[in-house]
Write a protein that binds this DNA or RNA. Structure first.
Lengths: 212, 212
DNA sequence: CCGCATCCCCAAAGATACTG
DNA sequence: CAGTATCTTTGGGGATGCGG
């Protein structure tokens, strides 16, 4: 039995990289940040990973306690979820990259993860709950006293104050600022139950354009 | 010419990993966090890396603008230095790892990087400058109004208020809390010019034991 | 010496096929 | 759908060598 390949350093950074530094590992974890997913979901979200590598990563990450398999779903453990600051730091650094700009289609997960990462508001007056029903997934967002306190895939217990129903493409335009929610409702590309301008506020709270 | 291997995703996290996600890449950057180093220094600090991989990483990291070669020294660019929050996040996560505890000798760089990462003090009264002369390297630390404002390898312009001269091993014990600076001076394992208790305060400001 | 390039070998990743 | 099995390709680890 060959022993696992490691950097063999006492440094906590090297240790972290021993755990999540393998190719694809952090991207697998990223896919679970908004909630549990199944094997097929991960494979679809990570084009190019190949089934054997995905299996390997899932096994490794579970072995060290970053994720746990429950039935057919893989979900982050509490400790795995604590990688959040790492993702935040990487994302904040990455968007400032002078290297060839990012291109390609963004999935809906990425949009909401971007909201979580770049959410900016300290308005203590602002409290609200939002639900976005898209083509495939539902996202639930909770803002309390100006802080984004929770953001998950899938509907939550109690109903949200504002419910937005639209398709993935329109959602992208809404997050990108190319379209306002009022405009989308006007052209019947979105339906809203609740306060439209309140939901618009949430869309504006992720200053993606301001960062680049 | 085969085009570079990339995750090919628009996500800023994936993009970051395209830049620093290759094996050894982040550890090379880590070695430069306290100041420029030469090829041989890096090779010595990264046992097992192998010369070709090190060359490759240095070339790649320079190509994307994370580091720059000046004469024989490799140093971080401003953007490269902005990876600091990533290292902080990784270190904070890594020390909480439930996996087999870190073992092995820690270099002096790691000790001072630990100080930078886990420095905890908000005492606005505290301002001071410190120089540590060890076996091979000199480290310069600056605290202003309770904040660690600078920490570099090599001596700085003006002389520090407190100068500690000792060997690497003793320094490790000092940071680990196994030995007090007063005790080290007593047993002639360290020599101090300036306020001993002031320097001790700095050593105590990195609550390594409190973290685990 | 130091800073690499070269070579060889193995382990990990990519691609595809296949099975419960 | 959820993976395993197999094959090929690529990249990393380690030793050696060579030029400045």
């Amino acid at each position: 039995m060959p022993e696992k390949r490691t950097y063999g350093q006492a440094c906590p950074i090297a240790h972290s990289l021993d755990l999540v530094g393998e190719r694809w590992a952090l991207l697998v974890v990223r896919e679970l940040r908004l909630g549990p997913r199944r094997y097929g979901d991960l494979q679809a979200a990570l084009p190019g990973i190949g089934p054997s590598v995905l299996s390997q990563r899932l096994r490794d990450l579970e072995a060290v306690g970053i994720l746990r398999k429950r039935g057919k779903e893989y979900g982050l453990t509490e400790w795995g979820a604590e990688l959040d600051p790492v993702f935040r730091a990487l994302a904040h650094w990455g968007v400032r990259s002078p290297v060839v700009p990012l291109e390609g289609a963004v999935g809906t997960d990425s949009m909401f993860l971007g909201l979580r990462t770049f959410f900016g508001s300290r308005d203590p007056q602002w409290t609200g709950s939002y639900e976005f029903r898209l083509d495939r997934d539902v996202y639930r967002v909770e803002v309390r006293e100006g802080e984004l306190v929770s953001l998950w895939r899938g509907r939550s217990g109690e109903p949200a104050a504002v419910v937005v129903e639209t398709d993935d493409a329109t959602m992208g335009e809404l997050f990108g600022g190319a379209l306002t929610l009022a405009g989308a409702v006007e052209s019947e590309r979105a339906a809203v139950a609740g306060d439209v301008s309140d939901a618009q506020r949430l869309l504006d709270a992720s200053p993606l354009s301001a960062v680049r």
